[in-house]
Computed example of a mutant assay.
Amino acid sequence: MKLEIWSDIMCPFCYIGKRRLENALAQFPHRDALHIVWRSFELDPNMQTKPGQSIHELLAERKGVSLAQGQQMNAHMGQIAQEVGLRFDFDNMVPVNTFLAHRFLHLAATHGQQDAAKEHVLAAYFTEGRNVDDIDTLVEIGAALGFDAAEVRAVLHTDAYTQEVRHDEYQARQIGVRGVPYFVFDDKYAVSGAQPSELFLEVLEKVWEEAHPAPAPVVLATGDACGLDGSDC
């Protein structure tokens, strides 16, 4: 059973959606049979990494609101995150271009550690106030996951996995993804947005049941019985 998830590192609902999905998976008896693939999606490919700018200032600028209103909007998002056990440190977030981090996640996939890498990168951005558009930061995350630090550094200094990121984004356009997170179950059903855990569980169960229908019982003997219309009784 496959689940593809298009998301961006700087998207708060992507992290919240990840937690809500995980809460659903904790109740899903077949979770070990689920293969999750994280697909790249850049909300703003032209975004410039700005370590000196606060995320409050960036939001206010983009929304055309005051700094105080931007802070209020982020505080509200932080409250939503707390509901699923996440702590967003908006005061220390570093606005970044996420392309390098997406390439790193594709590298992590080759090591079978993409899901863990996704969690580490999201935590680095939203909670730890780290610059995830920095090679040193990603090398440290890779080393924490058991990757060879020299390999990670060497790979990120090239354009490796650029095509993989671009292909994910091309796929997103082909299937009409307009926002993230965007979840596709077994190429059959799509869920857009950070939906409640109950909905994720419902979809997981539906997809599993369709892929693994209960077998019809084998009839070993027949005898006198009443028909549906009662005509044989």
Rank of each mutant, 00 (worst) to 15 (best):
S7F: 06
E61F: 05
P45N: 03
Q53P: 02
K63H: 02
A75D: 13
C14E: 04
V65A: 00
L58W: 08
A75I: 11
R62N: 07
K18H: 01
F28Y: 03
N74A: 09
P51T: 11
M47I: 06
P29G: 04
S54M: 06
A33F: 12
G17D: 07
P12W: 10
L43H: 08
F88P: 04
K63Y: 02
K18R: 02
L59W: 01
D44M: 08
T49E: 06
H76W: 14
Q53R: 08
H56S: 14
P12Y: 08
E83A: 14
C11F: 03
K63I: 01
R31A: 10
A33T: 14
R31K: 10
N46D: 02
R31S: 08
T49V: 06
K63S: 05
R19V: 00
L67I: 06
D8F: 09
E83H: 11
Q72V: 11
E83M: 13
D32W: 09
N23Y: 02
L67D: 01
Y15G: 10
A60R: 05
I9W: 05
A33Y: 10
C14D: 05
D32H: 14
H35T: 15
L34M: 10
E83P: 08
I36E: 09
V37M: 09
H30G: 12
P45C: 03
K50Y: 10
F88I: 05
L21R: 00
R87T: 15
R87A: 15
T49G: 06
P51I: 10
A68S: 11
R87D: 14
I80Y: 12
P12G: 07
A24S: 09
L67T: 02
G17A: 04
